[in-house]
Design a protein around this nucleic acid. Structure first.
Lengths: 136, 136
DNA sequence: TTGTACTGTAATTAAAAATATTACAGTATG
DNA sequence: CATACTGTAATATTTTTAATTACAGTACAA
């Protein structure tokens, strides 16, 4: 993060929940998000890989939820979607000849991991069902 | 985030703590981080604005901590450094004609705010002094 | 009082990352 | 067999991030 993967995935899941039972195609979903259908299909591929959605190919195809919305919590969605560190570390290697530079990556990673766990713990208290229920 | 502002700020603060008493100039700091000195000066400008460091202009100038490292917690550093949402939201406006699209930004913002608060709460348990002590 | 070594900051350029677009093979449906 | 999808790769565009250049302002010290 913070690209918009998490937001897009939550948007997709919310839509699938709201139109439950139906197969929604990538163009329809992209129309709601206002983004490119290929981006949606990529995002769906990832959600599928993590067992959150199911897709059907061919004419009349599309996607649906693969689990009960009450059983999808946002901590697991976060983990499914995440593809890089929450906090970017400087893309260049810090100076190995400097006492601080030499060790900081290791210490920052540990700090970030713990902070991220706190974040995930919080996200895990929400389910898709809770979230969906807020839309009226 | 997740640009590297937070990482760079923590690196700067750690260095200033480790070489306490001295004025460190932006070139020296940049050498440890392995980035451009101007980037360091911009980051210092922000830390200064938030009362975390003090800088001295002119020959022999540089920066020092403005507070005791035990009184600098990483929650406040995070808040000082943060300049955009933890999670990017799709840069296009979602479709206002869609029930989900119309309301999702509001609901996501609330969700993200609460998750971010959990993150900050965790970060607030660490001080610069604690962190610095890990370097040997 | 002048040269030197810094900061502060703006403007520009370059590099990297995110997203959109195009394209098309594969698959299910009728 | 025509149609309407998915899956995915390749490319192009846009946006964001970071580096670079430039220079005025400030402090020190000879």
């Amino acid at each position: 993060m913070s690209d918009s993967h998490f937001s897009i995935s939550l948007h997709i899941l919310t839509l699938l929940d709201h139109e439950k039972g139906q197969l929604l195609n990538s163009e329809y979903i992209a129309g709601s998000i206002n983004c490119n259908p290929v981006l949606v299909r990529k995002e769906l591929a990832n959600l599928r890989k993590h067992g959150l959605v199911h897709s059907k190919e061919g004419k009349g195809g599309g996607s649906t939820l693969a689990k009960n919305p009450a059983d999808i919590n946002f901590g697991e969605v976060y983990k499914a979607v995440k593809q890089k560190s929450l906090f970017g570390e400087s893309k260049n290697e810090p100076n190995p000849d400097c006492l601080v530079g030499k060790q900081i990556s290791k210490h920052l990673s540990k700090l970030y991991d713990e902070a991220e766990n706190a974040l995930i713990k919080n996200l895990s208290t929400y389910t898709l069902a809770d979230f969906s229920a807020k839309f009226d």
